[in-house]
Design a protein around this nucleic acid. Structure first.
Lengths: 239, 239
DNA sequence: TCAAAAGTGTTCTGCGTACACCCATGG
DNA sequence: CCATGGGTGTACGCAGAACACTTTTGA
């Protein structure tokens, strides 16, 4: 029998690009008898873990339940272990009633996932909320999201994460938009183009944009194998 | 009362540069009645956590116990949650006898610390072992160290981690050596010099190397504040 | 024929790379 | 005066920044 471990949970920050915004997947907290259901707080998708489950597997299970997706881009973000993180008290009350168990301390392992919004099964409980101006979430979930965004911004600069947020076929402009909105910086469009065109792992397709009221753009795909080679060829030391 | 949590431990990978090698801090596993003491296996410094302790605090406590150092450069590396990580069985036996408790599953939060070897209190139980050709350690500690090294190599390229491994006053050559040994690459010496000289956050001191049988080198220090400014001024997108 | 975005060209500057060379010190 | 490493100079090429310009489409 595989029972719940009452000390450890997994929470997932699932991010998606919904032009022109970056959005995060939130879940409406279920109402529980005895807790004021007026408090429609939101939370990250997550759950206590099972005794015999690797956390990466737990995270994938949770993601599948809420999005219908498998093979998601997933990274461990880190552990949130503040002994007082199960605050405010009403949130803790809710959690106890939901799982029908007493809880003392729960540490959570935060995960970080990137998906393409189009491929998701949308369900009534899931809310895709812009990452700017988030409401107050339960526990320390606001903090976890902030940490995830910082991680994303950092890693975007040196790794090809953006392609996880875009469809398989994309235009340079789409990449450009993703960079602008996530990093919050202005970039010279034509230099950005030129730069991307010289990246060997971006393969131009025999296909162009359709149904647009301007010159249709070249479509590209990201080639993981070629990226591997490209990455090996680099040995810059930058600070 | 603050009791042990039998589900979660903290392990620390403490790295130091001992010319010309990178070394990791290991602890000799204590002998326990009923376990063959011939098995002189080594382990990372670490321990089960206390119920009301933030893990960062646990890690610092452990590091202080083994090195006498406070204010260490410390980062969370990640969680190791394989349900079968407490293998081989003899290691699990040893752990149970040591803490006088039964153990089912323990997940560990791995931390990553960089220190200057000179400033450490050396004690008889602590062993500084070269990171190449490590012996077989208990549990998954070899895996944890590999992960730590990967992390170090990655982060070295974009962050000024090397200065955590060097004394406060250092020469360009020392930085050069650290990079060479950790990244395992060959670098053009004179270009490396030039590059470092242009970094605004490396401040030349009114002091030179002493007692060397060659031209004494300029000493520098790393200025954290200046680095902060330097970092803000960068907004490269690199892939 | 106009708006909108694709895509090209040009100039300047700075940085990485490769490599030759001179300088200071202890033995 | 030699070995050792510190430190400078030069020349080339590529890549980023800034910005003007041309092209292709739908409406």
């Amino acid at each position: 029998m595989n029972k719940l471990n009452l000390h450890i949970s997994v929470d997932c920050v699932v991010l998606a690009y919904d032009y022109p915004q970056l959005k995060v997947l939130l879940i409406e907290r279920e109402a529980v008898n005895g807790i004021d259901t007026k408090l429609h707080k939101l939370k990250l998708p997550g759950h206590l873990i099972y005794e015999r489950e690797d956390f990466d597997v737990s995270a994938r299970r949770i993601l599948f339940e809420h999005t219908g997706l498998e093979n998601i881009f997933l990274r461990q973000l880190g552990v949130f272990s503040d002994p007082d993180r199960l605050n405010p008290p009403i949130d803790l009350e809710w959690a106890k009633k939901t799982i029908h168990e007493d809880l003392n301390r729960v540490v959570t392992i935060a995960y970080f996932a990137l998906i393409q919004l189009k491929s998701v099964n949308r369900t009534p409980q899931t809310i895709w909320h812009p990452v700017d101006d988030l409401p107050e979430l339960i526990f320390d979930h606001n903090l976890i999201i902030r940490r995830a965004l910082r991680h994303l911004r950092d890693e975007m600069r040196s790794k090809p994460l953006c392609f996880q947020l875009l469809p398989k076929k994309f235009t340079i402009r789409q990449v450009f938009e993703v960079y602008k909105v996530i990093l919050g910086i202005s970039i010279d469009k034509s230099n950005f183009r030129r730069k991307l065109k010289h990246l060997t792992f971006l393969v131009p397709l025999n296909e162009k944009e359709k149904d647009v009221s301007h010159k249709p753009a070249q479509l590209y795909r990201f080639d993981k194998k070629l990226y591997g080679k490209y990455e090996k060829g680099r040995n810059e030391i930058i600070f």
